[in-house]
């Protein structure tokens, strides 16, 4: 029953609209808008909750209580924080490059929203199922570098500039392992369409067939979305707050929310590519597929938080060395092994 909750709702709406003799184009646009609003709401609420969850998890690890004032168990803490940042003045320092400076926080939030276009949330729940979904993900993610660079360069602050330079170096280096790890999955699934990749994991998840690829992807995505141990871009104790240093009020809040949304996308991508997406394990289909998706996503998020609250920050040269001298060769070897394995598998089958 829960399984078709959202799909059924969309279907019902469509029949209702059609029965009321709306133009087909109006129906399509209306449903698309509804999907966008739904995704945006999911994204925003989740980001708000994630910030709360991250703080709470950190508190548990450190034998603290964490946020506990606003709402029951402090659940509305981030809402209150965001409201507070809304009310604050957006302070623009002297001699900033005005347009890039003001544009960057807006653009940074559009990227994660764009990424959600191709994510399969559940059975038949894809906003738009692109043929080249994987390529789209990679391409859109790397745009974030430019936005961070805009923020860092236009801020007229050396700390921001350093952070921006770090972000460029980091994103460029970790793009490679990410793509190669994705490539091994694409090879297994034989398609770049995300729904096909999920469907290919119906029986066996790719984490079991691609353990090395999973590890590489897990680490590289962490680096790509700048979480400890790879949080050099922000690097609070070194460069204050990196590209975000000069931002205040809602501009800063947008950066902050975008960071957590990106983090969520990292977890979603790990789920989709390696943990079977919305597929239910052990045939437990009594839990609807979209709920499975969220459960898996939060499992991955918890794993990331666990590493975040345990490790310390890596140094810039070590980070680059790790990407180019370790992750990249290993991922290349992994692709080679995958290719040979697939070839042998087909030879035996046929």
């Amino acid at each position: 029953m829960g399984e078709n909750l959202f799909v059924g709702m969309a279907k019902g709406l469509r029949t209702w609209l059609e029965s009321n003799h709306f133009l087909p184009i109006v129906t399509d646009v209306f449903l698309m808008l509804l999907a966008v609003v739904g995704v945006l709401g999911f994204l925003f609420l989740n980001a708000l909750f994630l910030i709360y969850y991250d703080r709470k998890f950190g508190a548990w690890v450190q034998a603290r209580l964490g946020p506990n004032r606003v709402g029951p168990r402090g659940i509305f803490q981030t809402v209150a924080d965001t409201l507070k940042l809304f009310a604050k003045e957006i302070f623009i320092p002297n001699n900033v490059d005005r347009w890039p400076y003001l544009l960057a926080p807006v653009l940074i939030f559009t990227i994660p929203v764009m990424l959600f276009l191709v994510i399969p949330f559940g059975k038949g729940m894809v906003p738009y199922d692109l043929n080249l979904g994987v390529l789209y993900l990679v391409a859109v993610t790397s745009v974030e570098t430019i936005v961070l660079w805009m923020a860092g360069w236009s801020s007229n602050n050396k700390y921001s500039l350093l952070g921006a330079m770090r972000s460029v170096a980091q994103m460029l280096s970790y793009e490679m392992p990410v793509i190669f790890a994705m490539l091994s999955v694409v090879m297994m699934a034989g398609s770049m369409k995300l729904s096909d990749i999920v469907a290919a994991q119906q029986k066996v998840w790719f984490i079991f067939l691609q353990p090395v690829g999973f590890l590489i992807y897990f680490i590289a995505v962490n680096a790509e979305f700048k979480r400890t141990p790879f949080d050099l871009v922000e690097g609070e104790s070194e460069i204050i707050s990196g590209p975000y240093t000069e931002y205040s009020g809602m501009n800063f809040a947008l950066f902050f929310l975008a960071e957590y949304t990106n983090f969520m996308i990292g977890a979603i991508m790990v789920t989709t590519l390696f943990l079977g997406g919305w597929n239910a394990p052990f045939g437990w289909t009594f839990i609807p597929s979209w709920l499975w998706f969220i459960i898996k996503m939060y499992f991955v998020i918890t794993l990331y938080m666990w590493t975040r609250w345990t490790f310390l920050r890596i140094r810039i040269d070590q980070m680059l060395n790790f990407a180019w001298k370790f992750l990249l060769p290993v991922s290349l070897v992994n692709i080679f092994v995958t290719g040979v394995g697939l070839y042998l598998y087909r030879m035996i089958r046929w």
């Binding site: 548990w60 690890v61 034998a63 603290r64 209580l65 506990n68 666990w306 590493t307 609250w309 345990t310």
Partner: peptide, 22 residues
């Protein structure tokens, strides 16, 4: 060493908070 660190934080996860709601 990384795994050991993870084990330590995992163990701490279940301990009671030491802070006081002032």
């Amino acid at each position: 060493g990384l795994l050991k660190g993870l084990a330590i934080t995992f163990k701490e996860l279940w301990k009671k908070p030491v802070t006081l709601e002032y």
